[in-house]
Design a protein around this nucleic acid. Structure first.
Lengths: 343, 343
DNA sequence: CTGAAAGCGCTAACAC
DNA sequence: GTGTTAGCGCTTTCAG
């Protein structure tokens, strides 16, 4: 099994050609599985390739083809459940299309030059970009990304001139709120994700709209940062303020976990005293105490559709701008129940 | 701000040269910030570059330089807390060295040809590989990866002829167990991660060794799959069996969460009746109910050191095989307490 | 300070 | 079936 032992320099197609006594072109044909090579020649070439440990040089291939067979995944913050899961799905989808996934950051070391960062992005060895939007990116006008790289945007607001794929945040928030409303809750507080996240702000906006539509007072949104710690802090503050609502809608499951903890330590029962709903339906939600009612996001679909759209852009060029919204569904577990009748 | 509007074909260095009335070489010098260009010439070139929307072609650069400035991150399973966090750290570290991170999968569509997959890996446009080991990879002998790509292994057993970076699993498990032993626990059950994970099996091995050394009986290890659901299932089974220990050491925080849930629903109190320890110190652990005592893994360090080692291999060639073990620390919270004195 | 020539490794196009 | 030629876009010589 051992390959060319100490030959530190990698064998090129010419080395193989010389070794096998054929032309480079023939080696190329063998390497690409073309059939117009006499079997005996092919075998000889194959043997030489093996012996020299030949691997095609992808830089040369890329140069010839003008393609990298890689898509760029750009986000400001990988350490978020949604981004990680989306990345995972993107990787799987692109891989099955023969593409690798390259992780790119648009964050300048100096944080200054976001616009210029897009320029640098386009020098990367990728054929297109999936950009997970957040407020740090700033406004993306029609020209921001223009030098020819196809782009698909994830988690964005609707007005951008690009193909967009996103979880239907509005529909998700509605699902959670309608569930709570249906259980008779009238005072519902929202603990939201950070303001630089568009998913967070869109959920919060939907929250306000639903309550307004129901002619209910809209309590101030408590802005967290997606972390359980921030949910915990807001939960504690809420309890200390004495203004405990009958239901809390958390912007994600982790903050819901924090809220749950705060409720427990204050001796409040869930869902008897307070109902809690999360968002994401992370794998852990079913093991929270009590098991969390939450909005299930289909990250797989988001990643897959984003990849498919981008690949279509890359090789089709068929450039119909699309807006693809992936629906959510509500998973009802044990953290929600009928509103307690106020004494 | 708008760049060359509809020019669908990307401008090459020659286009710029022609446009500016200079040689391609001069454009190259300007593009690379060399100083031996007369300011007026430079300005003219810069203007042309801007006007044509010129971006250097990285394929050509790669071909010339023989470098891709990208490192490959290979794992069988991204959807694991440790792998995600390690990837995150790798991305940050490699980026600050001017490298991108390319996600690679060694999994063949058909699952058959793991060995051959390494060959394909070496055709990728990367300068080196960080391989997160797991049992699926199978035995890696000296020659499996040999065609010249530097490799650093994460999460591996000690015997491989490569540079290795890993959390010190043994030390971490010991920390958890010593804590429990110190609290007087004598019957400690371990819920482990899946057997195809080396981190899991190494923690389980350490568990057995510690108990043996303490001359304690070693209960059968309950093998989970890292998920909260598996922790929950094992917890319930344990309770149903009537053989509830005074302490449970879970292989990660998520399984600990499942165990906690099973305990609660059976009416057992934590830590009064049963103590629980996790592993990872995920961001959520502090919001579990009760807040989880757990072993803190420093994924940042793992990712950073792996990247640094790989980059050293890539440009130094200074090939001292190293084994870098990142220590853990125990974070004591509210899920552990003195062993209940048996009635 | 600037340009011309050559070549990185590969493949498309065209011979033979 | 197989070889030759040319060139992808860039940068490293070497000449001026």
């Amino acid at each position: 099994m051992k390959q060319g032992p100490n030959s530190s320099a990698r064998a090129s197609i010419n080395d193989v050609a010389a070794h096998a006594g054929v032309s480079a072109q023939t080696v190329s044909r063998v390497a690409n599985g073309q059939n117009n090579v006499r079997p005996s020649t092919r075998d000889r070439v194959l043997a030489s390739m093996r012996e020299l440990g030949y691997r095609p040089n992808s830089a040369a291939r890329n140069l010839k083809s003008g393609r990298f067979r890689s898509i760029g995944f750009v986000t400001f913050n990988l350490a978020t459940l949604g981004n990680e899961r989306t990345l995972d799905a993107v990787t799987v989808a692109s891989e099955s299309a023969g593409y690798t996934t390259t992780l790119l950051s648009i964050a300048d070391p100096t944080q200054l030059d976001v616009a210029g960062a897009f320029g640098r992005l386009e020098e990367q060895a990728v054929d297109g970009i999936i950009l997970v939007m957040s407020a740090e990116v700033g406004p993306l006008d029609e020209w921001t990304i223009t030098a020819g790289l196809p782009v698909v945007i994830v988690d964005s607001d609707a007005e951008l001139p690009y193909t967009i794929v996103d979880t239907d945040q509005e529909q998700g928030a509605r699902l959670a709120l309608d569930h709570l409303l249906g259980l008779g809750h009238r005072r519902i507080v929202h603990v939201s994700g950070p303001q630089n996240s568009y998913s967070a702000t869109r959920r919060a906006d939907a929250y306000r709209r639903v309550l307004e539509k129901a002619a209910l007072p809209v309590p101030e949104v408590l802005v967290g940062d997606w972390s359980a710690a921030s949910g915990l802090a807001h939960g504690r503050a809420l309890i200390e303020s004495g203004e405990v609502p009958t239901a809390i809608f958390a912007g994600n499951d982790q903050m819901a976990l924090g809220v749950l903890h705060a409720l427990h330590e204050a001796g409040l029962r869930v869902p008897d005293d307070v109902s809690v709903v999360g968002f994401d339906d992370s794998d852990e939600a079913l093991a929270f105490w009590p098991a969390l009612t939450t909005v299930h996001q289909n990250f797989d679909d988001v990643g897959r559709k984003a990849t498919e759209s981008l690949l279509a852009l890359i090789d089709g060029g068929a450039v119909e701008r699309q807006k693809i919204l992936i629906p959510t569904r509500l998973v009802v577990r044990d953290s929600t129940g009928p509103a307690r009748v106020t004494a």
